[in-house]
Amino acid sequence: MLLIKCIFCGERDETEFHYGGELRDKRPLNPNDLSDKEWAEFLYSKRNVNGIHIEQWFHSGGCRQWFNIERNTFTNEITNTFNLKKQKITREKD
């Protein structure tokens, strides 16, 4: 059970949040310029990192804001929480 620091509300239990997947590339502005293969890669391929992973979370049971966290997927340690513009707002204590 993770303790996640919402950048707006502070530390809350994982059950208040929705996981929104890894931080992916921006959706192409003109998807039609992409080949089927490129489009499939955009849609489906995953970095699936074993280690430091930047991901999106949604405080669905709270302020309903999306933000990013940096989590070690092996230890589950959360090393950073920041808003979508990737400004580092807090750095958690070790």
Binding site: G20, K26, W66
Partner: peptide, 13 residues
Amino acid sequence: LDWLDQWLQTEWD
């Protein structure tokens, strides 16, 4: 609603 929020906040902010 979650879906719309996700697009709005993460993609089309």
